[in-house]
Design a protein around this nucleic acid. Structure first.
Lengths: 226, 226
DNA sequence: GCAAAAGTGTTGAGTGTACACCCATGC
DNA sequence: GCATGGGTGTACACTCAACACTTTTGC
């Protein structure tokens, strides 16, 4: 811990942040991937990431990467885990502090508007081989997301301002990978005041219009949801 | 993420591991602290820690620190969180990957045998001011421990091979900070096969001897305990 | 026989789970 | 009037929480 004990040139370990950005799009849980343009991993898909700069904290670095490489700001972000295996990068020793982030499906992301060809929302169930240990990071991220759905209001990061209860339930089902009982789901969600009615309704095709809800709080909170 | 994009001399960030080692001793949840011998933090108490070496993984670094600075091997160890605030160390930029570890109260630790005067088991309820952001690390560690007691068999890290159910319950109570109902506790613990009878009994003073139990599994496992 | 800690069951409240039909709308 | 998705209630099983007395031992 003491810099004087072991000068820094004895420790050439790079520190990076990598962010697994999740969203529910087209009926699937997807993660944002970028194709690497050069170096030994050229052509491989990877999570958006970058080196931490000396003047920024880990959290700030993650936010910057999110903004610069994925074009999103002000979204749900939390630290996942620090990955520091010796062999995680063939180019040399590095430690990656992984973050996981959530975006609404209605945000206009580069990948969504297909502006860049080397960035894409991949279905987490059909991932290609990823560079580094990014497959592991995605897997840890999914585990965290599934867990946290059950005991927090984290889902607010995935849904637009207003949504129907069916949309909320569908998001849960897609992430958890199994169906939920409609009546029990609605009972519980309303019971714990996770959401509140907006008073608005949305008409959609030839069926009964649905009431629109919004989250009562858009800040991380521990709640027993399921 | 690409080393060529930003050469390492642009990033002089040191990476350390710091371990919060917990144990239940003399009726209190305690954490192992070491007094710093030199530098700007001289005289302050801190968690055992050290720089990560280029040839070792984060987990290996944590194990080495545990062994070198605290004299313990082969104990429960898991990563807690990566702390990377810009101001966490006045000497310069660093990132600390914090670990948390558990030891049985019956292990012969340096601090226990009072071999070193600058190492001690502090009651977590009466901590002195710690160096760096170590107070935060201890606090995150305690939260994790309390949480995990409820849904895992993590307690095996805190108890000796054989123990009475009262000892187990007392450990839970000390960590959680509140009392538990004896009958309900025993019912639940036995119900989920967290422990098994050894067949032995232990006599202690002028009271009824207690049956000795051991954990059915001494590997991390998810179980609904409380 | 008494002090000290070990050990043991039952009940009521509340929560989770399973399950099927009517409602409002557009065409 | 029919197709489409929205919306609602009840009964049973199970889990959780509260609670007090008997047993075994050493002195």
């Amino acid at each position: 811990m003491k810099k004087t004990d072991m000068p820094q040139y004895f420790q050439s370990i790079l520190i990076a942040v990598d962010t697994a950005i999740f969203s529910v799009i087209d009926g699937a849980l997807r993660v944002l991937l970028i194709r690497i343009g050069s170096g030994p991993y050229k052509g491989k898909w990877a999570l958006p990431g970058g080196l931490v700069r000396p003047e920024e904290s880990l959290d700030q670095a993650a936010e910057r990467v999110l903004s610069e490489k994925a074009g999103v700001d002000d979204i749900y972000l939390e630290q996942l885990y620090a990955f520091g295996g010796v062999d995680r990068d063939v180019r040399g020793r590095s430690v990656s502090v992984a973050y996981f982030a959530l975006v609404n499906s209605d945000r206009c992301l580069p990948a969504t508007i297909e502006y860049y060809s080397d960035i894409a929302w991949y279905d987490t169930a059909k991932l290609p081989k990823l560079a580094f240990d990014h497959t592991k990071i995605v897997s840890v991220g999914i585990d965290r997301l599934r867990n946290k759905l059950g005991y927090s209001n984290i889902a607010y990061g995935l849904l637009p301002k207003e949504f129907t209860l069916t949309e909320l339930q569908t998001a849960y089902e897609i992430i958890l990978g199994h169906e939920l009982d409609k009546r029990n789901f609605r009972k519980k969600i309303l019971d714990i005041d996770l959401v509140k009615e907006t008073g608005k309704i949305r008409k959609s095709g030839q069926s009964r219009p649905a009431r629109l809800y919004s989250f009562s709080e858009r800040k991380p909170k521990i709640v027993d949801v399921l």
